[in-house]
C-alpha cells in the first residue's frame, strides 16, 4: 500500500488496528455485550459529530452542542412527568420528544442568526449557548438529578432492533439521510460551496445565510436527539453532566473523519468512523485498566495525528 492510499484511508486502517489490538489483548472483547455497549455509547457521539461535520463544512464550529444536549435532555422528563404528561401518557410522550427538539432547533437558529446575519465569529457566537444553555437546563431542573421510570421513553436508549441497540440504527438512518442531503440536494451543494469559497457561492446566487443557518439548526437538532438518548439510556436526567465535553468529542470525531476546519468538506460517514475510533480508543484504555485522565491524553493524540495526516496531503 503506498503513502497516498494510506493517507486517504488512514481512518479505516486505524480502526482495523484498534480492533486487532483489542481482539488480541482486551479480555472478553469479542463478546456481543462489548458490541452493544460500544454501539450505545458511540451513537450519541456519531449523531452529534454528523451535525458538527455540517457546521464545520461551512467553515464554522459549534461549541454549544453539549449544552443543547443538556437542555433537551432536561426538558423531556419534565414534560412526561408533568400533570399533563401523566394524564395523557401518549400525548405527553410525543410532547417530550417534540418540544425539546423544537427548543434545540431554536438554539440552532439563534447560533446561525448570530453568525450569518450579525457576522459574529462562530466560536464566540456558540460560546454564548455553551455557557448559558447548560445553565438554563440546570435552572429548569433546580439542579436536581431527575430519575424516572418510563419504558416507552427509555426505548430510545435501551431498545433493540434486530438484536442491536435502537440508537445505533437511528444514527445509521440519520447518516443515510444526511449523506443524501450532502450529495444530492442543492442545500448540500451550497453547503460545500459556502465552506469552499463563500464569496464565490454568494456571487453565484447561493443563499449563503440560509445555508449557514440551516447547518447550525441541523446540528442543534441532532444534539437535541443525542441529549434525549443519553437521558433515555440512564433513565435519569442530569443537567450538569449530560453532554459534558461532547463538543470536543464531536469536533474530534469530525476531524478524524476527514472534515477540514477551513470548510468545504462534509464526510458524513467519516464522522461516524471518527466517532467509532474515538469511542474504541476510550473503551480500549478503560478495559485495559488505564485511567480516565490518560484516556483523554490518548484522545488528544489521535486528533493531532488526524490533523497531521490531513496536512500531509500537499505535494
Amino acid at each position: 500500500m503506498n503513502a497516498q492510499t494510506l493517507r486517504q484511508n488512514g481512518g479505516v486502517v486505524a480502526l482495523i488496528a484498534i480492533l486487532l489490538f483489542n481482539a488480541a489483548f482486551t479480555p472478553n472483547f469479542l463478546q456481543l455485550q462489548t458490541l452493544f455497549v460500544n454501539i450505545s455509547q458511540v451513537a450519541t457521539i456519531a449523531i452529534v459529530a454528523m451535525g458538527m461535520t455540517l457546521v464545520i463544512a461551512t467553515g464554522g464550529i459549534d461549541l454549544s452542542v453539549g449544552a443543547i444536549m443538556a437542555l433537551s435532555g432536561a426538558m423531556a422528563p419534565l414534560i412526561f412527568q408533568s400533570e399533563f404528561g401523566t394524564a395523557y401518557p401518549a400525548l405527553g410522550l410525543t410532547a417530550a420528544f417534540v418540544f425539546p427538539l423544537i427548543v434545540a432547533c431554536m438554539c440552532g437558529l439563534f447560533n446561525g442568526a448570530l453568525i450569518s446575519v450579525l457576522r459574529v465569529q462562530p466560536i464566540i457566537a456558540t460560546l454564548i449557548l455553551f455557557i448559558s444553555g447548560r445553565g438554563i437546563a440546570q435552572v429548569l431542573t433546580n439542579g436536581n438529578l431527575q430519575t424516572f421510570k418510563n419504558p416507552a421513553f427509555s426505548y430510545l436508549g435501551t431498545g433493540k432492533v434486530l438484536g442491536l441497540p435502537f440508537q445505533g440504527w437511528l444514527a445509521l438512518a440519520i447518516a443515510v439521510v444526511l449523506f443524501w442531503v450532502v450529495k444530492r440536494t442543492s442545500f448540500g451543494r451550497y453547503l460545500l460551496a459556502v465552506g469552499g469559497n463563500e464569496k464565490a457561492a454568494q456571487l453565484s446566487g447561493g443563499p449563503v445565510k440560509t445555508v449557514k443557518i440551516g447547518a447550525y439548526v441541523i446540528c442543534a437538532f441532532l444534539s437535541g436527539i443525542a441529549g434525549l438518548i443519553v437521558v433515555a439510556i440512564n433513565s435519569a436526567s442530569d443537567a450538569a453532566r449530560n453532554g459534558n465535553l461532547m463538543e470536543l468529542d464531536a469536533i474530534a470525531a469530525a476531524v478524524v473523519g476527514g472534515a477540514l476546519l477551513q470548510g468545504g468538506r462534509a464526510p458524513i460517514f467519516g464522522a461516524i468512523l471518527g466517532a467509532i475510533i474515538i469511542q474504541l480508543v476510550k473503551y480500549t484504555l478503560l478495559a485495559n485498566g488505564v485511567e480516565d485522565e490518560v484516556a483523554l491524553i490518548a484522545k488528544a493524540f489521535i486528533i493531532v495525528l488526524a490533523v497531521y495526516v490531513q496536512q500531509a496531503r500537499k505535494e
Partner: peptide, 13 residues
C-alpha cells in the same frame, strides 16, 4: 481565485 472558483469542488459542481 477569490470570487470565482470553489477550488476543492469538481469542474461539474
Amino acid at each position: 481565485k477569490a470570487e470565482g472558483i470553489v477550488p476543492d469542488m469538481s469542474v461539474r459542481e
